[in-house]
Structure formats: C-alpha cells, structure tokens
Design a binder for these strands. Structure first.
Lengths: 188, 188
DNA sequence: AAAAAAATAGACAAACCTGTCTACTATTAA
DNA sequence: TTAATAGTAGACAGGTTTGTCTATTTTTTT
C-alpha cells in the first residue's frame, strides 16, 4: 500500500495524480510534497529538478498505458479483434479517468517550444503507439497492397488520437464509439 | 498598424501571440503588459481578470479561424472539394504556426477541471467546427443513408482533429496529408 | 478653454514558485 | 555498537504570480 512505499514512489504516485488532474505547471513541488508526505530534501535527492519528476512520471505512464492496452488486446485472437479492442480499452480508460484525455498530449500543450526532455517522452510514446496500431492493421490487411495498409494504418491511428482529444473536449464517449465504428468499416 | 491600436487591442494581440507560443499559464500578465506597452491599470479597466483576457482571446481566435477556413473553402465549387480544402487550409495553417497545434485544445489541456468560462469557449468552437465539416459531408453524400452520413461525418471530423494534434506532436505535415488521403476514399 | 475620460508608471500586498541549505532523527549495515 | 545512509522539518533566497491602488499625464468631449 501507499504506507509502505518509499519517498520516491510516493512522489511519483502523487505527482501522477496531480499532474493529470491539475496540469503540470499548475502543480507545485510543495503540493506534491505535502500530499505525498515527503520532505523537500528527499525529493531533490531522488530527482534533480521538477522536470525530472515530469520525465519519470511520463515513463511510468507509458508503461501503465501499454500494460492496460495489452490486457485488453491479448484476450482477443485475431488482429482485427485486437484492433477493435484498442478502442474498447480507450473507452474504458477515458471514462475511468473522467475524460481528462491523454497525459502526454496534455503536458505537451503546457510546454513552450524548448523543453526537450519531456517532449521527447511524448514523441516516443506516440511513435510506439502508432507502430502498435499499425502492426495490427498490417496483420489484419496482410492480403492488401502496401500503400493501402500504410494509409489505413495512419487513418486508424489518427482516429484513435482524435477520439482521445475529442472525448476530453466533449466529456463524452461518442468520439470513441464513432471512431471504432468507422474503423470496423475500414477493415472490411 | 499596431501603433494605432488602443490598449485593449494591443493586449489581445500580444496575449494571442504569447498564449499560443508559451502557453496560458506560463504567460504572466506582466509580460503581456510589457510587450504590449500597456499600463496595468488599463488592463484591469478593460478586463476583469486574466481569465477574461483568455476568454476574449479565444473569441477572437474563433473568428479568425473560421475566416481562414471560409477563405479556403469558398473558392471551391463542390462540397467534396470544400471538404478537401479544409485539410488544405489545415496544412497551411499548421505549417505557418510552426506546428503549435490548436489554440483551443492547448488551453484546455492547461486547465484544471473547474475553469468553466474558457472551457465553454472550447466546446462551442469545436461544436461549430464539427457542424461545419458534417455539413459538407452531408452535401457530398446526400444520396446516401442518414446513418452512413452521420458516421462518415464524425470520422472526417475526428481525422481532422487527429491531424491537428499529431502534427503538433511530430512537428510534421504527414498527419494532415494522411487524413486528407483517407477522407478522399471515404467520400467515394 | 475647461471639464471629463482614458491611459500611464509604478508601488504594493499577499501569495506562490523552484531549489538550497542546515539541523535533526530514524533506519540500515558492518 | 558504531558508522553510514536515508529521511524529516522547515527556514531561506530570489524570483514569480494576480490584482489593487495612487498619482500623474494625455486625450477626448463639451
């Protein structure tokens, strides 16, 4: 439980909650320390700066995200079913998070052009997700031409991402449902 | 020119530049005042708070956005061409803005759950954009069934929004090009 | 020309921010 | 048991934030 966690983990757990709920810039180090019940000196022993906490927060978020995705897709047998399961997982996750959207996209919007380390985490995460989705598309449409596969792969990824963002805006599941529906027809 | 603008307009012009470039939370009132060469008391005579500046900033952004969209689509004669022109406009606008993405989505990501006035601007803007796009789809596919029209309308909108977000992440035009390509096939 | 309105500069309050530092107390290892 | 490590509490520096207020100057209107 939380009680047994060391300071580093308590910081990351609290930071994850607050960064996602309030935003990265709106969450101060002091609030994290208070809620995590950690001394300030301990934070700066484990992390060299707030940005460092942000980077580690995203690294953990990536691991958790793909673990969740894996949990939903591994139950399915065919690539087409796995692809649809991605959207099932998305609907579940977004609803569970009260439609706060994507941790990576959210933090990216807060940054001025320069902050390179956090931005790199975002790009890497989305590259990996895109590859993941396009992999399912490739397997599903293996009998089709390469160009069509690429095109539909990008389309499914864009629909997935669009669904994340729009469900945050409208605080509703319709974008995910609409995306899943059109993906079904794209796979036929 | 900028010289002749009153304090209110100079504030909004500067705020628009800084909010979009640095983010809303990272941009202080004082920086806006300095760069706009406006006294602090003048700002609080025209706006009751920083949030108020944010709301007016978004109202202007909406007007400018739809004016730009109109400029690109009105040149085309058929609804299908107008729809494709939306993506041409998007590619132009995003490239011109150095891939900073959508002013509305960006500011939404910075806000904690509560800030209702700014959030309302975002939702209204996206609702209007969605109606706009779905209108073109409806005209293009008028001979199709209502359900299919709705479904493809949502898909085109989600692809449009996905393209905005992903072009910010990857700082590239490929998402917009990919979205436009699949939209073309969806309209066939 | 006189009166009213608008804009300026900048001090100020009260609160926040990140990061450093000291001093003290547990916990762990040898 | 002693020594090293890890954690705590909190003061502090130097800066930031939004918003209010006073006093002065410029512009507009009558």
């Amino acid at each position: 439980m939380r009680q047994n966690l060391g300071p580093r983990d308590r910081i990351l757990e609290t930071a994850a909650r607050l960064f996602y709920k309030q935003g990265y810039n709106s969450t101060g180090i002091n609030q994290i320390l208070e809620e995590a019940k950690v001394a300030k000196a301990s934070l700066y022993q484990h992390f060299k700066s707030k940005e460092d906490v942000g980077v580690e927060y995203l690294k953990l978020a990536r691991i958790e995200w793909f673990a969740g995705l894996e949990q939903w897709t591994s139950k399915k047998s065919t690539p087409a079913q796995k692809l649809i399961a991605c959207f099932d997982f998305l609907e579940y996750a977004l609803t569970h998070n009260e439609f706060r959207g994507c941790k990576f996209i959210n933090i990216l919007a807060e940054l001025a052009d320069a902050e390179t380390r956090i931005q790199r985490q975002v790009v890497e995460h989305k590259e990996k997700l895109r590859d993941h989705i396009k992999g399912f598309v490739r397997q599903t449409l293996s009998h089709q031409g390469a160009e069509k596969i690429e095109s539909i792969g990008d389309a499914v990824y864009l629909l997935f991402e669009g669904a994340i963002v729009e469900s945050k805006i409208f605080r509703d599941t319709w974008p995910t449902k609409a995306a899943r529906k059109i993906v079904r027809t794209l796979l036929e």
